[in-house]
């Protein structure tokens, strides 16, 4: 009884040509289909994002007390005015995107119970990050808030009179 010598790297078993061609065909087809699929997936990834402008002007009511939040209609931003100036804090919860309520002590999220202090920092709940402070531009007759610009917490803009 003869035993076949174990194939070694120096003396590999030859691959039959038929197997080689078949394998190549399968791999080539697989690669082609994979790339076609990846190409198809480019379609649902929108290149232009339809959304409203994130920059808007606000006028604060005269009666706005220090520490009291003013939420412009249709926006998810809370604007505050006190001795140090004006600042704006996003009211989009950093946990899962619900809109937080402004309360006397800060902010509360109705969806999963996150609570934030008046400066936006997380007090309790699952929110991973503090509420961001947003960029405010103050000129003589207008206040502009840019929801896309995040500024360090504690940045107040002096009121120009």
């Amino acid at each position: 009884m003869t035993t076949k010598p174990a194939p070694s790297r120096l003396d590999p078993e030859p691959i039959p040509r038929r197997d080689f061609l078949g394998l190549s065909a399968i791999l080539a087809s697989g690669a082609a289909l994979l790339f076609a699929l990846l190409g198809l997936l480019r379609l649902p990834k929108a290149a232009v994002l339809p959304s409203v402008s994130k920059k808007f002007k606000v006028s604060l009511p005269e009666s706005l007390a220090p520490g009291q939040a003013y939420v412009p209609p249709g926006r998810s931003v809370a604007v505050f005015r006190d001795d140090r100036g004006i600042h704006a804090i996003s009211t989009v919860c950093t946990h899962l995107g619900c809109i937080v309520k402004t309360t006397a002590h800060g902010f509360e999220c109705p969806c999963h119970g996150s609570k934030f202090a008046a400066d936006g920092s997380v007090v309790r709940g699952p929110a991973p990050k503090p509420l961001p402070w947003l960029g405010v531009t103050v000129t003589a007759n207008s206040i502009t808030i840019d929801e896309e610009t995040v500024v360090p917490a504690g940045t107040h803009k002096e009121i120009v009179t």
Binding site: V71, P73, G74, R75, S76, C98, I99, K101, P110, C111
Partner: peptide, 9 residues
């Protein structure tokens, strides 16, 4: 209403 979630949602 994108401005106000239900509470509780």
């Amino acid at each position: 209403n994108p401005a106000v979630p239900e509470n509780p949602a």
